[in-house]
Every structure is written in C-alpha cells, then in structure tokens.
Amino acid sequence: MQKKLILIDCDPGCDDALALLLAFANEELRIKGITVSAGNVHINNTTENARKITGYFRKEIPVSKGCEKPMFRNIVTASEVHGESGIGKVVLKNTDKKIEEKNAMEFIAEVLKKTEEKVTVVITGPMTNIAVFLISYPELKNKIEKFVIMGGSSIGGNVTPSAEFNIYVDAEAADIVFKSGIDIVLCPLDVTMKAYITEEDLEDIKNIGNYASEIAYGAIKNSLEFYKEFYNTNKVPMHDPCTIAYLLNSEIFKGNEAFVGVELKGKYTYGETIIDYRNKLGKNKNALVLNEIDREKFVEMLKKAIKSI
C-alpha cells in the first residue's frame, strides 16, 4: 500500500495533540514534518508541545517553528480552553529532540523541493505559516496535492457569533489559502461539532493505561471542564483529529463541494467563512466541505490509535 505523504501544520493545543497521536499511530501516513504556528497558546508553548509529543512518539519526524503572530494583526489565543501550557494540566515528558534550524516556511520549501511526489498539507491551526509560504515560494505550489484544513463554519462561530477560531486568528492568511487554487478539504464546525467524545468514551481512554492515553485523557478532560462550564454539555468536540481521520478513512465523512471565502472587513463578521452551499455567488467551488461524520467509527479510530501507539 502506498503511503500518503503529509506535512502537519498545527498549534498544539488539546485537540491538536489528539490529531498528532492519531497520525503517529497509523503507518499508512508518511509524515515529512511538523510545522508549528501560534494560535491556541503562544508560539513558544505550541512549539514545545509539538517537540515533546513528537520527540517521545516519533523522534525521527522533524519539527519546525513558524510565525509567532498573524500576518497583520495581534495574536489571539485560547488559553481559557487549552490551559496556559496548551494541553491543560498534562505534564509532557521531556525529550532530547531538537527543533529544526530552518523556520517553518523554509522547512516546507525544503521538503517540497526534495520530494518527487506531491505532499498533502494538513492544517489544524491558524494558516499564517502556509500563507507566508505560498507568498514566499509560489513556484512550489504545484508540489502540494491538497490542503486538509480544520477551520471555518456555516453554523455560527466559537470565538465570535460568526467566526471560528482558526480562521478568526488570521483571516487574511486563510483568505490567501482559500484563493490559492490548490484542492481543499475543509473540516468546519459543521462536522467537527459532531465528532464528539462523551464522558463514557473518556473513561475508556483513561483505562487504556499507556502514556498516549494519559495525554489524551488529560487533554480531553481539560476541554470537557470548559465545555461543561460555558456550554453546559458533557460532549467534547474533537475538531483537529477530523483532518487526520479523513485521510485515514474518508468514507466515514460526507460533504459537499462549495465555494468558501473569508470575510475580512465586516465590523461584526471579521473571520467568518462564507460557505456557499447553494451557489448564490456563482463562484467556482474551491473546497470539499465536510458536514457529516460516523461518530462511532471516528471514536473507535481514536481509541485504537491511542491503544496501539
């Protein structure tokens, strides 16, 4: 079986940590590198989390630090959701893994130049690194197979009434990515809110009893406490792992082709994704937008990965 070549651009982050564990546990993915953005927490924290998780489970995979702030705006973080460190109260084991000397954009360029096959880029945080790469290395755009992105929403936002967090943090960067002409698979809140973990699932994960389950349990429990307090629910959506799950088994998802744009000027709607399901704008469809998931199969995939890694 031919392995899928991927790069992961992330901002760990509780659910980013789950996405990394899911990717690391599945050998059908050939991970060429991890690049890190600011987002859920400060860039130093997201980079350290990526370094430690990768260093413990897949030390051979390079990790590169990216942009510390959005292209044109001040950074907005979500430490109230993810904790000050980014992964709640989880204390990650240290490793001797080093961060790459090249920054994220230079690293992506190097990987694409050296790889004959096209590479799929998974994005689970703000898109700053990828937008800056596209501007800096336009000649390498054709080396990207597609983007698989967690971001956006047509059902209302989770940081403003209309904007989803990853897009809101750097909407200008998202606009560049959506206009790139590269194939896009989008995992918006439309589908990720349906990819939830229950308290019963969380106990199952805890009982697996290995280090991966310790990380997963702590990360999900931290998010659960937030969702209980602010949304009065005991269901925790696993946003970022949906991207990896799609690559592993696209058949557990359903979606529609649509034009996706980003609102950059609205007083109340900055960062909103315009997902034109009904083709009201008459624009070319630039993304496969996922909106349904087989939750049971998704959760089973997560548990299997945590148990096997």
Rank of each mutant, 00 (worst) to 15 (best):
K98H: 08
F72Q: 14
E251L: 09
S64I: 05
G66Y: 03
V262S: 00
I87K: 01
I31R: 01
V191R: 09
G125I: 09
I144T: 14
L247P: 02
K98N: 09
Y227C: 01
L186C: 11
E200R: 09
V36E: 06
N234Y: 12
F178H: 13
D201S: 08
C187D: 08
M127S: 08
I130D: 06
M150A: 15
E199G: 05
P241C: 07
K59E: 15
N129F: 07
K297H: 10
I43R: 02
N74K: 14
D16L: 04
E272V: 07
V185M: 06
P126M: 05
T77Y: 00
V289H: 00
I130Q: 04
P237V: 09
I144W: 15
G88L: 02
A174K: 06
E116L: 14
P70E: 13
E84H: 10
I182R: 05
I205D: 05
G282R: 08
E116T: 14
A17D: 01
F259T: 05
S250R: 09
E203C: 07
E27I: 07
F57S: 05
T273F: 10
A104E: 04
F298P: 00
I293F: 11
H42N: 14
D175L: 12
E229Y: 12
E48P: 06
T54I: 09
N256I: 13
V236E: 01
D294K: 11
N207A: 10
D170F: 04
M1D: 11
S250T: 02
H82F: 05
A38G: 08
S85Q: 09
K118C: 12
I275S: 03
E100V: 09
